[in-house]
Design a protein around this nucleic acid. Structure first.
Lengths: 209, 209
DNA sequence: TGTATTCTGTATCGTTCGGTAGGCCACCTT
DNA sequence: AAGGTGGCCTACCGAACGATACAGAATACA
């Protein structure tokens, strides 16, 4: 349930001057992602984050900016990693396969061991206080962007005769996105991999023929 | 997307002794509900709450206990009010009508003017810090309880020949609940009434015949 | 070796958080 | 009218929040 994979880790290998970093920025970001994923943007305190990342506050601020910037970087990492199945699914040959790949990918991602149950794009900041509002809006925009990519893919499928004439690409995209989002809530509530998998079986019965 | 309607407002009409309250407890609770609904449990500060309720902190504590107790009371009000369509839907004569009534009711609730976009049971505390964890668990349990009622209703429907033999009541209940939850996320992202309504049309295509 | 540069760690900033103490006030019963 | 009861309000509590100042330590370059 995340989208777009911005460039990960281009690694500037010029060690320049000054005292070298005592921690791996990439691994610290991964730890931060885990915390945000589990607790959401508001629920993750700097104490939680620095403890999990194994660094001090000033190091965090020097390396990532501030809490909001850290979240955005963590989200990009999420989009490229755990939510990478989204981009993969969009490349499936038929609309039906795109839909199924996306939903099966969601099941995998939501039931992966040693990962928080849920989706960062959904749970990150669904509703929140005023301070976190920019993050909420950004996540709304990201979800909408993913759904829009899906709509475009289905539009193309329709022009290729891959979808029947009566099918509406926007409606289908919304249907699939809604399922993926609902599945994130189900996963947060403890739904098992098998339950989510059967859910996808049921959901795909609605696919136009 | 909420369930169970505990008793609302039994109104003890005995004015007893002491200075009478200067505010309407019921209306104050309604205002608190609006704040929690819009900002979630963590995102709603006592300052937000008391400002909206038009009372001071000590009055809030005297009348409702503390923030957590206030949230639970607000949630009960939500379940009996804006989410009352859930209980109504369960009484529809056929399984198909139960499902459709529930989803149409969700559309109505999620697109009602002058109400926050979304569902308190979903957005209240999907993921949060440690302090709000009891609320998160409670909301998980409430969602699960609603889904279980739906399952039992579909179980009955099956025994009444109202669902085909190959249909699995648990899977159907999860499907409908997932849609309702996903729709709450869609509404939070700005989906219109018409979009949600067409979504329901698509989703019901999956219903077993 | 000296200096500039950059990171680390401690100790703290001002603000906001949820929650309360205590004085004042309004209403009841007697 | 007196006393008791309970709600209102100001002002405040300790703790946690996100964010930093500053001094010391580790490196590159001169």
């Amino acid at each position: 349930m995340i989208y777009l994979l911005k460039g990960m880790k281009q690694e500037a290998p010029t060690p320049k001057a000054g005292r070298p970093r005592a921690f791996d920025v990439d691994e610290a970001l991964e730890r931060a992602l885990q915390v945000f994923w589990r607790k959401g943007y508001e629920g993750a305190s700097l104490t939680d984050l620095t403890a999990a990342m194994g660094i001090n506050r000033p190091s965090l601020y020097a390396a990532f900016g501030n809490k909001e910037a850290l979240f955005r970087k963590a989200f990009d990492r999420y989009a490229a990693g755990p939510a990478g199945f989204w981009a993969v699914a969009l490349q499936a040959p038929t609309a039906r396969e795109v839909a199924e790949s996306l939903l099966r990918g969601s099941v995998d991602s939501l039931s992966k061991p040693n990962c928080p149950r849920g989706c960062l794009a959904v749970q990150g900041a669904l509703s929140c206080g005023d301070e976190a509002d920019p993050i909420r809006r950004e996540l709304n925009a990201r979800r909408a962007a993913g759904q829009e990519l899906l709509r475009q893919r289905f539009e193309r499928a329709k022009s290729e005769g891959d979808l029947p004439a009566h099918a509406d690409p926007a409606d289908l995209a919304r249907y699939i996105a809604t399922l993926a989002q609902g599945m994130a809530v189900q996963a947060a509530g403890g739904a098992s991999r098998e339950e989510l998998s059967r859910l996808v079986d049921v959901a795909l019965m609605a696919w136009p023929k």
